[in-house]
Amino acid sequence: MKKLERQVGAPLFERTSRHVILTAIGRQLHEDLRQAHRQVEAGLAPAVNTASGIHGTLRVGYSAPWNGNLMIKTADAFHLRHPDCEVPIQEVQLHDLLGPLRAGALDLQLTELPIGEPDITTGPVIAREPRALIVPADHPLAQRETVSLEDFARIPLVTIAGTIPQYWLDQHYPHRTPAGEPIARGPVATYWQEVLSPVAAGKGASPTYARAAHYYSRPDLVFIPFSDAPPVVYGLLWPSDGENARVRAFVQTLSEIAGTRPGLPSPQPALSAGDLDL
């Protein structure tokens, strides 16, 4: 500082035993240099992003509609940090849960666990959502404030078909209750939204997350929370051979916004029903 003051030819700070403050000339120099510093940072940012690999396009997806809001918020924050990287976002359909990742159409997605595939890395858990059961409005269960996992035995399940790991289906659409009672099967849908009509028509029930009531509320459907079911767990997934600086940076940003701890674990084996306590 003394050297800079000699170069300027005037004091930049007023110094006492109690404090150090800028002089008028010091304040002016600080303001002038701050504007120049911002220009330098702006000029360096593209080069830094290019050197770190955070440029180009990062394609992200989500499987639950409420996660779309989180992904958009994260993409906006990510783009502010890395303006040379575009982040298109799309919804992933459950009937082809891992297809877009494996086809190279997505680089990263947020979806319901468990996923345990040798070519897919399971990243940090981002959220946990309470479960609910969708039943016809005229079904006896519709009068209840909560349902139990044992109530699965009282009504067939409308399920999803497609290219979905069997362990994932067994986790979310079990064949037996915790007490061992068989759970009947109702109609099979391709898209999750298609389960709503057969449920409303009295053909069965469908498990979901409690927040779904805000997105799919209908007068002929009732969403009842479970009293004893574990939450739906949402985690990040990406191709194991596709991890790069863009993916790591987005995972970091999303973890910060969601209030979770970021991490980049190795591929993991499939989780069992016991792992998620269902």
Score class of each variant (00 low, 15 high):
Glu5Tyr: 01
Gln7Tyr: 09
Gly9Asn: 02
Leu12Arg: 00
Phe13His: 10
Arg15Tyr: 03
Leu22Asp: 01
Ala24Phe: 00
Leu29Asn: 05
His30Cys: 06
Glu31Ile: 12
Asp32Val: 11
Leu33Asn: 05
Ala36Leu: 09
His37Thr: 12
Gln39Lys: 15
Glu41Gln: 11
Leu44Ser: 05
Ala45Val: 08
Pro46Ile: 00
Ala47Ile: 12
Val48Trp: 04
Thr50Leu: 12
Ala51Gly: 02
Gly53Glu: 12
Ile54Asn: 04
Thr57Arg: 03
Leu58Ala: 07
Arg59Asn: 10
Arg59Val: 10
Tyr62Gly: 08
Tyr62Met: 07
Asn67Tyr: 11
Gly68Lys: 06
Leu70Cys: 04
Lys73Ile: 12
Ala75Thr: 03
Ala75Asp: 04
Ala75Tyr: 08
Phe78Glu: 04
Arg81Gly: 07
Asp84Ile: 00
Glu86Asp: 11
Glu86Ala: 12
Val92His: 07
Val92Met: 13
Leu94Met: 06
Leu98Arg: 05
Leu98Asp: 12
Arg102Ala: 02
Leu106Gly: 01
Gln109Ser: 15
Leu110Cys: 15
Glu117Ile: 08
Asp119Gln: 15
Gly123Ala: 11
Val125Lys: 13
Glu129Phe: 09
Pro130Asp: 09
Pro130Tyr: 09
Pro130Met: 03
Ala132Ile: 00
Leu133Met: 12
Val135Phe: 01
Pro140Asp: 04
Ala142Ile: 02
Glu145Cys: 07
Val147Lys: 07
Leu149Glu: 15
Arg154Glu: 13
Leu157His: 05
Thr159Trp: 06
Ile160Trp: 11
Gly162Met: 09
Gly162Trp: 06
Thr163Asn: 12
Ile164Leu: 07
Gln166Leu: 04
Tyr167Glu: 15
Asp170Val: 07
Asp170Ile: 03
Gln171Ile: 11
Pro174His: 09
Arg176Phe: 15
Thr177Phe: 03
Pro182Glu: 14
Ile183Tyr: 13
Ala184Thr: 09
Val188Thr: 10
Tyr191Val: 00
Gln193Ser: 10
Glu194Asp: 10
Glu194Ser: 12
Pro198Phe: 11
Ala200Leu: 11
Ala205Asn: 01
Thr208Glu: 00
Thr208Gly: 02
Tyr209Leu: 04
Ala210Phe: 06
Ala213Pro: 01
Tyr215Asp: 15
Arg218Glu: 03
Leu221Met: 01
Ile224Ser: 02
Pro225Trp: 13
Pro230His: 15
Pro230Val: 04
Pro230Glu: 05
Val232Ile: 06
Val233Glu: 08
Gly235Phe: 01
Leu236Gln: 13
Asp241Ser: 01
Ala245Ile: 11
Val251Asp: 04
Val251Met: 12
Gln252Val: 00
Glu256Phe: 08
Ile257Val: 13
Gly259Leu: 15
Gly259Arg: 06
Pro265Ala: 05
Gln268Met: 09
Pro269Leu: 01
Pro269Arg: 02
Leu271Lys: 11
Leu271Pro: 09
Gly274Gln: 10
Gly274Asn: 15
Asp275Ile: 13
Asp275Asn: 02
Leu278Gly: 14
